[in-house]
Amino acid sequence: MDRNELISMLETKAKKLRRGVIVSIGVGLAGHVGGSCSSADIVSALYFYKMHYDPKNPKMKDRDRFLLSKGHVAILQYTALAEAGFFPYEELAHTKEIGSMLQGHPDVQKTPGIEAGTGSLGQGLSIALGMSLGMKLDRIENRKVYVLIGDGELDEGQNWEAAMACAAHKADNLCAIVDRNRLQATGKIVERFPIEPIDKKFEAFGWNVIEIDGHNMGEIIDALDKSDSVKDKPTVIIANTIKGKGISFAENVVSFHNGILSEEQYQQALKELS
């Protein structure tokens, strides 16, 4: 597959992931539309280009690991896992049902392919560091831990404890990706609780920083590849995104952080993502 074909394939997958998110949420129940759609291209690139794993053997030792620190967009990861073959696509329709393997937030005990229990924000990077240290102890080379963090989530202080610790432990097998969609649950980050400059903060903490357009598939895969050659320090990819990307009425709309779709909106979203 040449580069253009690869990019086209990943873009198609990303669209499919967004569609899966909408199908999982359905009509009349709240779901995290906005943050799922902003992260979809990144997750597509990770699951269908970058990461090494075996859906038939989810615990395979020699695998890359993906942690969703922004655990509220679990439905996006579930869709990716289904698309990758970890479980049947039909399971998505049972998301959040009592007894379902697909909980509102990622659960390591219930869902194949889920690597960490997240949802209480700001903890994924720390868990990723533990995996990074474990991989080094086990001499697992050429494998990585990827952790996707929301920009609003960076309010949580534990991220910065972890950022220090990742640098102190030279976690060069760890790559964090910040989905910088610039909105948090109650409004624009810049108005509610300003956190910029994210890049300079990570730089000051000793990280390799790459900034990209998080909806430009070429830039995403290049950034992921570039992080492989960095030694002795962790990498953070700051991905500039649009919350709700791909669904016209949800783009940049705060209320679709955890929004409810009407029947009409549901149909329109599926149409736009077809």
Binding site: A116, I127, M135
Partner: peptide, 15 residues
């Protein structure tokens, strides 16, 4: 806080 969640990651690696 970070130490405790880091331990979770190590446990997930079989330590």
């Amino acid at each position: 806080a970070n130490m405790t969640s880091t331990a979770a990651g190590l446990a997930q690696m079989g330590f």
